[in-house]
């Protein structure tokens, strides 16, 4: 299992690196664009399109995350349920597994971004604009977002009892929600509007309070899904 996890992490690194270079090749290889350092960094981490955009979080990375979630831990056999005094304990364990995968996934995304950005820009310049801090903040928020996605996937999986249908429905839900927010919900809050930390930071739009609210909202969403899924889990039929 350790080898499998190491392979997953390496594949994630390769995948994120590929996406990073495909999305940012214009900014790092084409000097004729004549962008200032902050402009280039802001465009590379834009919330509209690119490696750290909401579109990428919702449409590019949802499938790799679910694949990662399916492979990172061993499948639980039916007898696993008797190892725990209460079903709730098993549920908490499953939740922790989702959180771990979300953290690994989000921080691999952040690590690749930080690694390749610092390869093409000087460390001092990046430190000056607090890029490393903001990347870390984004990583934490992303972990919360993918924890929600993982919980939705598990809900569908237990409802349909088919991982491929759950995979499909989660993808459809996240994709449709992204387009709903993009095309119809302009002004009011939506869960994906919080995932714009880089843009808000580089354009000085958010204060610390707004950053905090973004975390609180995402944490509340995870909390809500945790409770919703717990009702489902209490009634889960493990044998059939």
């Amino acid at each position: 299992m350790k080898a499998k996890r190491a392979i997953i992490v390496i594949i994630l690194w390769v995948f994120f690196s590929f996406v990073w270079f495909i999305q940012n090749r214009h900014f790092v290889f084409q000097s004729h664009l004549r962008l200032s350092f902050v402009e280039a960094l802001s465009l590379m981490n834009s919330s509209a399109v690119g490696y750290s955009s909401i579109q990428a979080y919702a449409l590019f990375y949802t499938i790799p995350f679910i694949v990662c979630l399916n492979h990172f831990f061993l499948l639980k056999p039916i007898y696993c349920i008797v190892r725990f005094a209460k079903r709730r304990h098993l549920y908490v364990r499953e939740f922790i597994e989702i959180v771990i995968v979300a953290i690994v996934f989000s921080f691999m995304h952040t690590f690749v971004n930080v690694l390749w950005t610092s390869r093409f820009f000087s460390f001092e310049q990046l430190q000056e604009v607090s890029f490393f801090h903001i990347a870390l903040c984004n990583g934490v928020l992303l972990s919360l977002f993918y924890t929600s996605v993982g919980l939705i996937y598990q809900c569908f999986k237990d409802l349909t009892r088919q991982s491929n249908v759950a995979f499909f429905l989660t993808l459809l839900l996240v994709g449709l929600w992204f387009f709903m927010e993009k095309l119809f919900i302009f002004t009011s809050w939506g869960p994906m509007k919080d995932l714009t930390i880089y843009t808000q930071w580089f354009e000085n739009r958010w204060t610390i309070i707004e950053f905090l609210f973004a975390y609180i909202r995402q944490a509340l969403l995870v909390f809500l899904l945790f409770f919703m899924y717990s009702f489902l889990y209490e009634r889960k039929d493990f044998i059939s």
Partner: peptide, 8 residues
């Protein structure tokens, strides 16, 4: 606008 159905 957005090419949502095409992307999906």
């Amino acid at each position: 606008i957005g090419h949502a159905p095409q992307i999906m």
